[in-house]
Design a protein around this nucleic acid. Sequence first.
DNA 1: GCCGTTTTCGGCCCGACTGTTTTCAGTCG
Length: 611
Amino acid sequence: MTNQEVAKLLRNVAAVYLLTGENRFKIIAYEKAADSIQNSPVEIQDLWREGKLSSLSGLGPAINSHLDELFRKGEVKHFKRVLKRVSESIFPLLDIPGFGPKKASKLVSELKLKEAKTVVDSLLKAAKQGRIAVVEGFGTKSQEDIIEAIKRFKKGQIKENRILLSSAWNTADEVIQYLKEFKGVLDVQPLGSLRRKVATIGDIDIAVATNDPEGVINWFVKNPKVNKIIDQGQSGATVILENGRQIDLRVQIPERFGTMLQYFTGSKNHNIRLRELALKKGLSLSEYGIKPIDNSQKSRPKADRPQDEKLKIHEYAREKELYQALGLSWIPPELREDSGEIEAALLRQPADQGKLPGLPKLVELKDIKGDLHLHTSYNLEPSHDLGTSPLEDILNLATDLGYEYIGLSDHNPSYSNHSESQIVNILMQRRQKYEQILESTKSTRVNLFIMLEVDILPDGQLPIPDKAFSYLDAIIVSIHSSFHLDREAMTKRVIKGLYHPKAKILAHPSGRLLGQRQGYEVEWSKLFNFCRTNNKAIEINAHPVRLDLPDILVRQAIEAKVKLIINTDSHKATDMNLMPYGVYVAQRGWSTNNDILNTLPYNKIKEWLFN
DNA sequence: GCCGTTTTCGGCCCGACTGTTTTCAGTCG
């Protein structure tokens, strides 16, 4: 059962509780548990297998025992009874935007929609016939909205709207550079998932600090790349660019910029936790700032409260000041997912220093000293695609990037087309050629590792003969076929592939391609244990379609004390510039320099690679 | 039903938006 399915089940239970007048906090508890499961990139069923259900926040003894029954027997008796209390036609409607339990229930009973399978279509039909507008609490407007919502819902099931981080970043950066040309712009920052560097992005939002909001907004909509202005107001504007992307701009005076930046950076869960923390300190945090809680006003209707209440709000020019007001140190946006960062950011008493773990000092791009997964255009008749850039170009770019070393990790020669001795020969000649080129470009100070990216065959074997290893400093291993082995078989396969003493790195370990392909199934804790014990590294592949190892697994790997290495997997020299995306993933996984092998200087990484 | 740097009992995030209302309920992020 997928996380999505388990979350949906809990949401349905919460919906029934809402409709049947259960304690509202019980309802919230079920919804929180559903959120937690849905946001977990670890499969909940894996957590259950390992007996770690409680590691997810919001899962307590009661829900855990229900989930235990669910995974053991395939269903939960208690849930089954609960769900029977309402018409099953309600549940499909809950997936439609704008529909909650109340609305769904009302329509199902008023319109007598009994068939769950056809309820969406029946509802659409009823709306078109004008039978919704006459229901109490609904009108013609809501009837039209429902038709629109169902249409969008039907489209949405086919098309996923999120785009790759790199693509969103490039678009946003162009707009940010354009905005900076306007002299009234004091600061520009991306917001939301873009600022947090999530692997895929929904909306592109940008914030500007300025004392001339009107001027900035006018400048923004006049961008020659703007195709269409959707909305233009006093606090911002929304446009569609030539490339079809929507950009939201928000402007704010510098005195309030930190407050806005914090609020719109999220994540939602991070902000919820901050507000809970504020409450415990007798403060109330909102998108407008922090104010003391005034209990004497709480019971009075809003309209009766004194107008000057807003004056008591503290606004912040910088995020740092806002976090400090809550007793926290500033938290890097990449960590704001409510996954322990708030606890780690609590300002310590001097006596506690060193005793409790604080925020990590995150690895940065400038700490990266090399890239070990590069494909050149040298034709070794490989099993997969050849690189397109010659070694000379790669060396030049490596010099520009300030690298101390690079690793040439072309795909292995195809094994179906070559005999063992042919493969040995190819690799011998390749080594000679590379050494020759390095010799002729004496000006470079970049050190070279002559490596290979080797397929792990379905049975775990490596398709190159023993003799060939003498022409290789080390190898990277990876999966390029038979993605659908079961979890156990895949784990065995990968571990066997890594077993060779020269196999040092597992590349793109989950095999996912964002928006195209799910990763394959692996028993991660088993793999991590093997890597730690045997001194193998796991790659963080920086290619924007991969970003693999995914950030949450990076965090788990680090907790398991596994070493990681960030590589670009470049198939052309300019791909080497994609390194920042790998660093973002490492940061989101709480990596310090200590966790990332290619922050090591040449002599140290050589020592590791040759051992 | 969950949770703990004021608590193992007594709390549980905040505000905007929308449509239908004439003071609010439901939904969303």
